[in-house]
Simulated scan of single mutants.
Amino acid sequence: MANDAPRRPLQSAVALTYKNDSPAPKVVAKGRGLVAEQIIHVANEHGVHIHESKELVSLLMDVDLDRQIPPALYRTIAELLAWLYHIESAQKSGQPPPPAPDTSSPLRDQEEQ
């Protein structure tokens, strides 16, 4: 018996970490389907903010685990880190969170040069 229910597209997720003494953020987890769901679940459990960007995730999926993000993504990831900082500041002060940065074209800076 065939299931005629529409199938949800296969979800992908990437987790990054950044330490102040590190030159760039690193990819610490990535996956599709159930692995992606688990990454998102663990992030939610630990209060980690999640930003959805299919374009950015697609580019980050090409980065090997425990490797730094490529220089072409530095600006986009820096904007996300700044956004997360502002979210945390807003939460502490009771202010509304800022809007998420536009990451729909993560390589826009490369294209403009």
Rank of each mutant, 00 (worst) to 15 (best):
A43Y: 13
D64F: 11
N20D: 14
P98T: 05
D64R: 13
V57R: 02
D102S: 14
H46V: 07
H46Q: 11
N44P: 09
H51K: 05
A24H: 12
H49A: 13
V63T: 07
K19F: 01
T103S: 15
P25T: 02
E37S: 12
A100S: 15
E55V: 06
A100N: 07
A29T: 04
K92T: 00
P99T: 13
G31R: 05
S53T: 10
Y85L: 03
P99D: 13
P99K: 15
I40R: 01
H51L: 13
L81V: 05
L34G: 04
E88F: 02
G31S: 04
E52L: 05
A82W: 07
L60S: 03
Q68I: 00
L81M: 09
A82H: 11
R67D: 08
G31L: 05
P99M: 12
H46G: 12
P98M: 04
Q91A: 10
Y74Q: 08
D64G: 11
A78E: 09
E37A: 14
V63E: 07
T103I: 08
T76E: 05
L56A: 09
H46K: 10
P98A: 09
P101N: 02
W83E: 03
S89Q: 09
L16R: 14
Q91T: 09
G33M: 04
D64V: 04
Q68W: 04
S93I: 05
V28I: 11
E88P: 01
P71S: 05
A36H: 05
I50V: 15
V35M: 13
R67K: 14
V42M: 02
P99I: 11
L65S: 04
V57L: 12
A36S: 11
